[in-house]
Nucleic acid binder design. Structure first.
Lengths: 117, 117
DNA sequence: ACTTACCGTTAGTTGACGCTTACCATTCGT
DNA sequence: ACGAATGGTAAGCGTCAACTAACGGTAAGT
């Protein structure tokens, strides 16, 4: 299965990481400043940033003693693409399913209930 | 914060649930049949379905002794909308950030480093 | 050189959650 | 009425991950 999807998914799957991601939406932020705005410690933020970075969703760059994190538009775009694919497949298939009988394999063992009366 | 986003996010954040979600893409499936296609037990599948249902991503309907689960297009569409909002905010803000100096609040405390020597 | 600020990493703990094994309810078929 | 099939739920358990505290490392300022 798409490793990128899964990685990005459980990267954003955590509430704290999602919050961090959202904050990075407003531009690059240093770790300390980020941690101050959050209910968790700085090391925790560092670890979350590591996950986000490994998922390709953010990049870092040091400017002196500080390390600024910002969103990685490529990674975000790629993840978005994967998600769109999921949505499309889900919603698209739903249209079709409305016309097909029950489902794929099942055969549902034709309960002859419909034969009643 | 958007509860729907968070709920849907950690609903799909689990690999097994994502797999179930994907399988439901092909049309409604009964629990037993679903469980047979998966590496986990039926009760596990039931629990996952519960989470997906609570997140509004699937609906169930019983047909005899069986209970068929299918994707809920409304829930999916809504989640998709929330996600699109996230992507848009992330990528949109990135364009802007490319022109602004560093960041929002920080002020970075004007290191008079340039005054040296 | 010394101090301060900033940050990554490790070790260790703890709470959450995914899984299984029972058990029970409901419904169909005989 | 009885047995079989289906599936939800509770209890118990193991595992993983999120968090904190402590440490070390680097860079800037004096």
């Amino acid at each position: 299965m798409d490793a990128y999807l899964q990685a990005g998914l459980d990267a954003l799957g955590d509430a704290t990481r999602m919050a961090i991601f959202q904050k990075l939406t407003h531009g690059p932020v240093a770790v300390n400043e980020l941690a101050r705005k959050m209910p968790v410690s700085r090391p925790a933020v560092s670890q979350h940033l590591r996950v986000l970075k490994d998922a390709g969703l953010v990049t870092d760059s040091k400017v002196g003693t500080r390390r600024y994190y910002k969103l990685n538009p490529e990674g975000v775009a790629r993840l978005r693409a994967h998600f769109d694919q999921v949505w499309e497949k889900a919603l698209g298939a739903f249209q079709i399913e409305a016309e097909k009988p029950p489902a794929g394999e099942s055969r549902v063992r034709p309960t002859r209930r419909s034969r009643r009366s």
